[in-house]
Design a protein around this nucleic acid. Structure first.
Length: 306
DNA sequence: AAAGGCTGCAACCGCAGAGGA
DNA sequence: ATCCTCTGCGGTTGCAGCCTT
C-alpha cells in the first residue's frame, strides 16, 4: 500500500510498505514453528527485513488464524454501535465482544461505515445523541420527531451501566473505572492483571450490564440476558427457533435479514430501510427503520422493543 | 475513454504504560 | 528513583480500485 519512505541510515535494510506473499509465508511459518516470542528479535531470526512492530501488526491484523475476515454482519454492527456508545474509541476493549475481529478492523469499519451512517441519521457519532445542527435529521423529521424521553432513558441507562461496572470493579478489582473519565475520552490501558493469558482484556461484558438495565426499561419478549454478546437477537413474533430464546431469532447476515422480510410480516421492522444505508446511503426512510419506536431502537437493534 | 473524485483499508506513526535493569 | 526497552493502542496516511462526470 504505502511506498517506501525516504531511506534513513538504519532503514537501509528495513523494508516498509505492503507485505508480499513471500514475506507473509516466512512470517507465518516462523510463528507457527517458534511462536511469537520477542517481536523485536523476530524479524532477524525469521530472516525478514522488517521491523518487529511491522511484523506484529501484520500477524495480528492479517495473518493470525484467529481472525475472521470479510463483511461485518448486522449483528456485529449493532454490537459495535452499542459498544461505541459505552466505550468511545476504545477499539481494543471492543475486541473482547467481537470474536475474531481485530481492533484495526473494528476501527476501520466504524470510521468508514458506521460513523457516516449515524451522521446521516442525524446522530452525532461521538456522543450518540442527535446533532443539534442536523436540520435534515431523519430523527427530527416527520411526525414522530426525536423522542427525547427515550434519549433521556438511554443516557440514564448508560450512566447506570457504568456505575454498575464501577461497583463490580471495586469488588472484583478487574475493570478500570469508567466514571473517572467520560467513556468517550477515556484512554486508560488495561493493566496486566486485567489481561487474560491470551493478552486480551477480561471480558467486561458491558453489553450484558447495559442490557440488564435496559431490560428494565423496555418490555422484552422472553430473552436470555445472560447470553454472551454474540447472541444479540431480533424479536421475531410467533417464531419458535431452537437457536434462540422463544420469540427471538439470531440474524447474522444481511441475506438472513432479507429472507426474514420475505417470509414474515416483520411489521415493525423495516430492514430494507436499514440496508439502504449500507448500499446507497439513502437517508430518507429512517422513520421506517424506527417503526413505532424511537431512534435508538432503530439504530441499535432494528426491532421495535417498546 | 479519460480524468477526477471518492472509498476502503492496510500499514505507519507517535505515544503511553509495564516491567526489568 | 530513574532510565531503557518492549508492547500495545488510537489516530492518521496514502494507495488501489471503484465510481461519477
Amino acid at each position: 500500500m504505502r511506498p517506501p519512505s525516504p531511506i534513513g541510515e538504519k532503514e537501509m535494510v528495513l523494508k516498509r510498505g505492503s507485505w508480499t506473499e513471500e514475506e507473509d509465508k516466512v512470517l507465518a511459518s516462523y510463528i507457527k514453528k517458534h511462536g511469537v516470542g520477542s517481536w523485536n528479535s523476530l524479524p532477524e531470526k525469521a530472516g525478514l527485513q522488517r521491523c518487529g512492530k511491522s511484523c506484529r501488526l501484520r500477524w495480528m491484523n492479517y495473518l493470525s488464524p484467529d481472525i475472521k475476515r470479510g463483511k461485518f454482519s448486522l449483528q456485529e454492527e449493532q454490537t459495535i454501535i452499542q459498544l461505541h456508545a459505552l466505550l468511545g474509541n476504545r477499539w481494543s476493549a471492543m475486541v473482547a465482544h467481537l470474536p475474531k475481529r481485530t481492533d484495526n478492523e473494528i476501527k476501520n469499519h466504524w470510521n468508514t461505515h458506521l460513523k457516516k451512517r449515524l451522521m446521516k441519521m442525524g446522530i452525532d457519532p461521538m456522543t450518540h445523541k442527535p446533532r443539534s445542527d442536523a436540520s435534515t435529521s431523519p430523527c427530527g423529521r416527520g411526525k414522530k420527531g426525536w423522542n427525547l424521553s427515550h434519549m433521556a432513558q438511554w443516557e440514564s441507562a448508560r450512566l447506570e451501566a457504568e456505575a454498575r461496572l464501577v461497583r463490580e470493579s471495586r469488588s472484583k478489582q478487574i475493570v478500570p473505572s469508567l466514571t473517572n473519565q467520560h467513556p468517550l475520552t477515556q484512554h486508560t490501558r488495561p493493566t496486566s492483571n486485567q489481561l487474560t493469558r491470551s493478552g486480551r482484556p477480561e471480558c467486561l461484558d458491558i453489553l450484558k450490564a447495559w442490557r440488564g438495565i435496559v431490560a428494565g426499561m423496555f418490555v422484552f419478549p422472553t430473552q436470555d440476558l445472560s447470553s454472551p454478546v454474540s447472541t444479540l437477537c431480533f424479536p421475531f413474533n410467533g417464531l419458535a427457533d431452537t437457536e434462540c430464546s422463544a420469540g427471538w431469532r439470531e440474524i447474522t447476515t444481511t441475506e438472513e435479514a432479507e429472507e426474514l422480510l420475505d417470509t414474515e410480516s416483520a411489521s415493525d421492522v423495516d430492514v430494507d430501510a436499514w440496508l439502504d444505508f449500507e448500499d446507497s446511503g439513502v437517508v430518507g426512510n429512517y422513520d421506517g427503520v424506527l417503526g413505532n419506536s424511537n431512534c435508538w431502537d432503530g439504530v441499535l437493534n432494528l426491532p421495535n422493543f417498546s
